[in-house]
Write a protein that binds this DNA or RNA. Structure first.
Lengths: 152, 152
DNA sequence: CTGCTTGCAAAGTGTTTGCAGGCCC
DNA sequence: GGGCCTGCAAACACTTTGCAAGCAG
C-alpha cells in the first residue's frame, strides 16, 4: 500500500514548459517549489514545502510558497488534498503516458498516515454518483478517512 | 438531492440519555447545542451553532460550544465532517431503527454546497478497500468533492 | 462537597492580503 | 521597461488552552 504501480511524474522540465504555455513566469520561487515536490513521493504540507524550498531558494517567503502552490494547482501541475486536522498536502499531479492519472487518498484517523488509493477503486462510485445524482466527483481531491490495517 | 429518505434522528431525550450513560454531565450548554442540531436538517458550522446556541443559552461561550461538540462527537451523538476551506460542519448522527445510518458528503467545489450521499453508494467501495487494502473506511466522515449538477 | 464544566482571554495554527519594490520576459 | 511576482507584515478564520469560578451529581 502506498506504492502505486509504476507511475511517472511530469518532471521539472515538463512543469516549466506548462508554466510557459500558460504565460506564467518561471521564477526561482516556483522552481524551488517544483523541485521540492518533484524529488519526493510523499505528500507534503505547506510548512514542509516552505522549509525545503528555503534550501533551494534562500529567503523565499511563506506567502510566496502559498501563491506558487495556488498557481501550480490552478494549472493542474500540482494537486492538493485537504487533510482533516492539518491543512492541505500537495504533490505533483501524477501522469501515466501523458494523461493525468488521478488517485484518491485514505487517511487513518488513528495514526494520521496518508495512503494513496488508485483511481480504479473509485471509478464505479464516480459513475454511479454521476448517473444517479448528476454530481461529478473529482477523485483526485477525495480524502476518505478510516482506520488503516496497522491500527486495527 | 440533500433530502435523505425518511431518516430519524436520535432525538433530544435520547441524546441526554446517552450523555448520562457515559457519566457526562447534562449542562445547559450541551442541551443548547443538542437542541440547535436537533432542530435542523442542515449541517451547521461551529460559528452558526455558537450563534444559535446563544439564543437557547444566553452567554454561552464559543470555547464551550467547541468543547461540547467535541464531547458529543466522541460519544457518537454528533458527527462532524471536515469541509474544504471552511472548517468542520456538525450534525446529529442519523439513526434508522436504532442503529447508526451513516451517510457521506459531497461538496461542490464551485458553489460550496454540501449534499448528503446515502451510505448505499459507498458500500461497494468500503468492501473493496477493506478486502484489498485492509483499510476500514468510515463513510460518515468521508468528504468527497466535485461539481454539482447545477454548476456544470 | 467533589471535580467536571464553564467563561474569559489569550495563544496557536494555517492561510491570505495590501503594498512597495524587484525581476522575468 | 511593463507588469507579474516577491518579500514583508499584518490581518484573517478557525480552534484550542490555562485558569479561576460555578454548577451537576
Amino acid at each position: 500500500m502506498g506504492s502505486a504501480p509504476r507511475r511517472r511524474e511530469i518532471g521539472l522540465s515538463g512543469a516549466v514548459d506548462l508554466l510557459r504555455q500558460h504565460q506564467q513566469r518561471v521564477t526561482p520561487a516556483r522552481i524551488a517549489v517544483l523541485k521540492v515536490l518533484n524529488e519526493t513521493a510523499d505528500h507534503l504540507g505547506a510548512a514542509e514545502i516552505v522549509s525545503q524550498a528555503e534550501i533551494r531558494a534562500p529567503g523565499v517567503h511563506r506567502a510566496t510558497v502559498y501563491r506558487a502552490l495556488s498557481t501550480l494547482c490552478e494549472l493542474g501541475i500540482v494537486t492538493h488534498t485537504h487533510v482533516a486536522g492539518s491543512g492541505s498536502v500537495y504533490h505533483i499531479t501524477p501522469t501515466v503516458d501523458g494523461t493525468h492519472h488521478a488517485h484518491s487518498h485514505l487517511q487513518c484517523t488513528s495514526c494520521g498516515a496518508l495512503f494513496d488509493l488508485p483511481a480504479e477503486f473509485l471509478l464505479p462510485l464516480v459513475r454511479t454518483v454521476e448517473r444517479d445524482l448528476g454530481f461529478r466527483l473529482e477523485p483526485q481531491h477525495a480524502a476518505l478517512v478510516g482506520i488503516c490495517s496497522d491500527c486495527r
